[in-house]
């Protein structure tokens, strides 16, 4: 079942309902489907197209623009090693070489046990903590080869299951907009002056 499951369809509709145009929910829904399946399936893109009112080709066009979306299964843990300037200055190349040797795969590869996919990544917004890497987008700062080995051991042994969910799950907290508190989606069809703005607005 690689379309969105029933629970996720409910969630998807709730997310769509937050935008003036359904198509805006495309990326959140792609994340939702990646959370469900670990990667973006072909059927999920068709399904998302149906939900947001776009063709499958349009969904694919959007999805392939963003590097977080994977179209084939990846490891349970996506290991991204940053190689941009600050990290490179402080040993990113060595860290990557070590990671390739330790995991036995080249960047872009997945270990035979399906646990780890290793990737070269661009700047992760942690430049002062170089060299930096992420596991399923959780930051690991000031990495050393020893820390890397320890991290891989901990992940493989399941010691970090509570902290790092499997690939596809991003935030474990979702925004809730309670219906009784919501201000409501801005209407594009019936534009109105905001209630708190003096009307008519000064045109100076």
């Amino acid at each position: 079942m690689s379309r969105l499951n029933e629970a996720n369809v409910i969630l998807a509709k709730e997310i769509i309902g937050r935008y003036p145009k359904a198509r805006s929910a495309t990326i959140p829904l792609l994340h939702l489907s990646q959370q469900q399946n670990g990667y973006i399936t072909s059927e999920a893109m068709v399904h998302i197209g149906e939900l947001v009112g776009a063709t499958s080709a349009e969904i694919l066009g959007t999805a392939t623009f963003y590097e977080m979306f994977k179209f084939e299964p990846v490891g349970k843990y996506l290991v991204n090693i940053c190689g941009t300037m600050s990290c490179q200055l402080l040993g990113a190349d060595e860290l990557m070489h070590h990671a390739e040797a330790r995991l036995g795969v080249k960047a872009g590869g997945t270990t035979a046990d399906g646990l780890f996919t290793l990737e070269h990544a661009e700047c992760q917004a942690a430049c002062t903590e170089a060299p930096n890497m992420q596991v399923n987008y959780r930051h690991c700062h000031r990495m050393t080869t020893a820390a890397f080995d320890q991290l891989i051991d901990d992940l493989a042994a399941g010691r970090l299951d509570g902290e790092i969910p499997p690939h596809g799950t991003l935030a474990r907290v979702r925004q809730q907009i309670p219906a009784d508190k919501a201000a409501g989606v801005a209407s594009l069809d019936a534009p109105a002056q905001p209630a708190w703005m003096p009307a008519p607005e000064a045109t100076s």
Partner: peptide, 10 residues
């Protein structure tokens, strides 16, 4: 009105 071809990749 047939957006069945699209840019892909980046």
């Amino acid at each position: 009105g047939d957006p069945l071809i699209h840019f892909n990749g980046r």
